[in-house]
Structures are given as structure tokens and as C-alpha cells.
Design a protein around this nucleic acid. Structure first.
Lengths: 232, 232
DNA sequence: ACAAAAGTGTTAGGCCTACACCCATGA
DNA sequence: TCATGGGTGTAGGCCTAACACTTTTGT
């Protein structure tokens, strides 16, 4: 037993991990809870912070343990906020710090000794335990805001992608229509995407051109205070 | 004594409250610590979260207790982030959630049974205990980012202000020079400031025109996705 | 007299937006 | 042959950025 002079809350983390594919659009990675309360419900991956562990590290660790997902240092979890409703967990007072990130679905191996983990389209989410509905809602709003300013869209696509792919991704996250030509023009003008090779001579004009994200250029723009921004 | 099966961290809040006046520029409100550790050091106001209290409520309460500052519901504290270094507090494992806000210096009454509280110019801060230096640094960065998109600058000025006042405020937070005429034009065009009355006939042309923040207009722009943004 | 503070207007260039057509493919 | 997907360019308008002079006041 661990005893304290004053009552202490428990501290947990929760992760909202977004994935994407052209058919299903945006999805969230959920796990089936193995323990009470809400056993067998689908919920956000996460768990209790260890006493000798930083909070962000806990989020990564739990995510890895529960879903097999190993985030690279390049696309670490981003802090979403603190959720501290006094009755949000029936067991005891639990304060959670939520994180979010976009990943390639292919990075989730699943299996191992990982619990059952599944992608759910954001338009068709199950009922959530705790206040996970609120957390996911906030994460989606935050994602929309962030994608204007940060190249997070690139985390989610293959290393090499086509302009229509990038366009569809943006449209599916922002849920608005905008002009694909202007979109491509802006991306090119900003220089955050580089053309990869040329279309093979034998390929038809219909074969899409391939691009790659130019991280250096992006960092330059960011530091230059000339914020990367999509206005559509 | 309160006992738990697993070790629990303590959870605290810290507030970075910014004030402003035309002479000193931007300042941060600090309190002199009354207890160990770091007794008598200047530090951010804040304290332990009660077991039946939400984290944001704790921040407001502690701020009020320690500095006499009562925030209106219009300018609530904004969450800055979670700081969880395992050795950040020598007493025990303490995880803190930091908040920030801008206020009018006149709102701080000081005195009462409040502890000693003082404004320190951001360019001349004392040595901080814990990781408060990091927190303040992040708050300043965050402030610079937010002032582009939100009318937080208006929280800090009198209800009625002049264009040069507003201009100086922006310049002093962003630490860059930009054209005061373009600044005024943009503010007017956006419609987020309304002229208050007219210059009295007997007043000279040098007397500055007075303005007031137009909150409705600002909310409209915000919802319109036409983000309020200063590009200078 | 002179420096400092406040008000005001114009212009050029760049960026955003809207928009239409061609080619290739596969059904 | 027709619908679909992909590539490409242009013109108008708005916004941004740069810039100078006048009036008043206080020293």
C-alpha cells in the first residue's frame, strides 16, 4: 500500500490515434477493454502513469502495449489536454491527459500479445465509456485546426504519394470542398512537396505524378514565420 | 492517511498570468513562496488539486487565493500543458498542469490575506524553482502564437483604448516592428474594433481616437472560418 | 525651433479564387 | 462512347506591404 497525508488522484493517459485510407476516410484506433469497468467496450488506448515515468512516455508505452503501434520519434504524440471531471471514472478519482497523432494504418501490426485493436471510421464510432466521446470530439476539432498549419497530413500517407491522394486526404479531414487545382498550385508554390522522378515515357498522361514531402523546406517556412497555411 | 494499492502522483496547477503596461511592457505575476521547498523564492501561483475539484477550477482557485485575482468567465485560464518530469519536485512525484492568461494589471488587488504577489517584466525574471522557467518560456511562445488568432490583446487593455495603445501592445508581445498604418487599416477592415464617439470638436488632431473591441464581430469572423490573423 | 506623437491615402505586387479544356482509361 | 480521373493555365479582385506628409504639442 502507498499512503499519503492528502488524497491523491490517479493519473492516466489516453491516445486518439487517427488513421486514414482512401476508401474509409479517417478512422480512430480503439481497443477492446479487458478489465472492468466497461469490460469488453471499445475505448481509447491508454492506462495509468507509473510513478517513475513521464506522462508522455506513458502514453507511448500504453499505446505500444495495447495496439502494437511503435511511433517514430518523428511523429510523436501531441498533447491534447487534461480531462479531470470528478466522476469520470467510477473506480476512483482519475485525471487523464489525452494525446493524439495521425499514423499510417500499416504501422499497426495488431496481433502479438496486443489486445484486440480495431479501426473505426470517425463517422461510425461505437458508444464510449468514461468521457472518451468528448476526448475524441476534441481531437477531431484539433486535427482540423492543426492540419492548416502543420504537415501532419504527410505522416498518414505513403512516403511517396500523388497529388490526388493528398487532396483527398485534406478534403476528408476538413470536410469541405475546395478546388483541386488551387490546392496543387499552393502546395507546389510553397515547395513543401517535391516531384519524385518523372512520369515514365511509356506511362500515359493519366498516370499520376508522384511527390514526396520536403521536410527541410517545411521547417524553413515554419521558422520564417511565414506560416504554412491552407486557406482554400 | 489515504492509501492506495499503487503509488499515486500528486497533481498541481500553475498559472502564468501576463499583465501589460505601456512603460514596462509585458509582465508575469509571481508570488513569493511561503513554504518549503524554495521558501521565499518567487514562483508561479498554483497549488494542489483537491480530490473533488476539476483541474481548471483548482487553477482559478489557487490564483485567486494567492494573488486576489478573480478572472471573469469571459477570460478564463487557457490550458498550456502538462509538466511531468519525475524529479521536478523534491518532495514527491508531482505532475502539474499549467495554464495561462492575459489580464489587466488593475484587476490584481493584491493585499487581502493574499500572499505577496508582484509583477515581473518578462525581460527581467528572477530565477525560478522547479521547472517554472520552462513553463514561462512555453507560455510566452504560446502567447505569441495565440495573439495572431485570438483577440486576447483586448483583455489586457482598458475597455476603451486608442490605436497606438493597441499597436504598442502587439509590438511589445511579438517583438517585431511593423507598420502602424497597415496595422490600423487591418484592424478597421476586419471590424473587430469600433470607434467610440468622436473626437471632441475642441480637441486637437493629436488627441487619439478611442476604440472598443467588437466581440460579436470577432465571433462572427471566427465561426466563418475566416480566421482573424495578423500578418504584418 | 524642433522633436515626437497622431492622423491619413496610394500604389504595386502577390496571393487567392474561380473557372474550362484536353487526354487517357476502363466500363 | 461515355463517364471518370488526371493534368494544366489564366484573369480578376482583394489583401499586403511599403511608403510621406500634415498637424499638434511639449520642450
Amino acid at each position: 500500500m502507498y499512503c499519503y497525508r492528502y488524497p491523491h488522484p490517479a493519473v492516466t493517459t489516453d491516445c486518439v490515434v487517427f488513421g486514414y485510407d482512401p476508401n474509409d476516410g479517417l478512422s480512430v484506433l480503439l481497443i477492446r477493454r479487458g478489465v472492468e469497468p466497461f469490460k469488453d467496450c471499445w475505448a481509447l488506448p491508454g492506462g495509468f502513469v507509473r510513478i517513475d515515468e513521464e506522462v508522455a512516455a506513458c502514453a507511448s508505452r500504453e499505446l505500444n502495449e495495447e495496439t502494437g503501434l511503435q511511433l517514430s520519434h518523428l511523429s510523436n504524440l501531441k498533447e491534447l489536454g487534461c480531462y479531470s471531471g470528478v466522476d469520470r471514472d467510477p473506480r476512483e478519482r482519475v485525471i487523464t491527459i489525452a494525446y493524439y497523432q495521425l499514423v499510417r494504418k500499416s504501422e499497426v501490426k495488431g496481433g502479438d500479445d496486443a489486445r484486440e485493436a480495431r479501426w473505426f471510421p470517425v463517422d461510425n464510432l461505437p458508444a464510449f465509456p468514461f468521457d472518451h466521446d468528448k476526448i475524441v470530439e476534441h481531437a477531431i476539432e484539433r486535427l482540423k485546426r492543426d492540419i492548416y498549419f502543420e504537415p501532419i497530413g504527410f505522416n498518414i500517407l505513403p512516403e511517396v504519394f500523388t497529388m490526388p491522394q493528398l487532396y483527398k486526404l485534406y478534403k476528408s479531414i476538413l470536410k469541405v470542398d475546395f478546388d483541386r487545382r488551387n490546392f496543387a498550385n499552393k502546395m507546389m508554390k510553397l515547395g513543401v512537396v517535391d516531384q519524385v522522378g518523372n512520369r515514365p515515357k511509356d506511362a500515359s498522361r493519366r498516370t499520376p505524378i508522384q511527390y514526396r514531402f520536403n521536410k527541410e523546406r517545411y521547417e524553413m517556412l515554419k521558422n520564417d514565420k511565414k506560416a504554412f497555411r491552407m486557406e482554400f
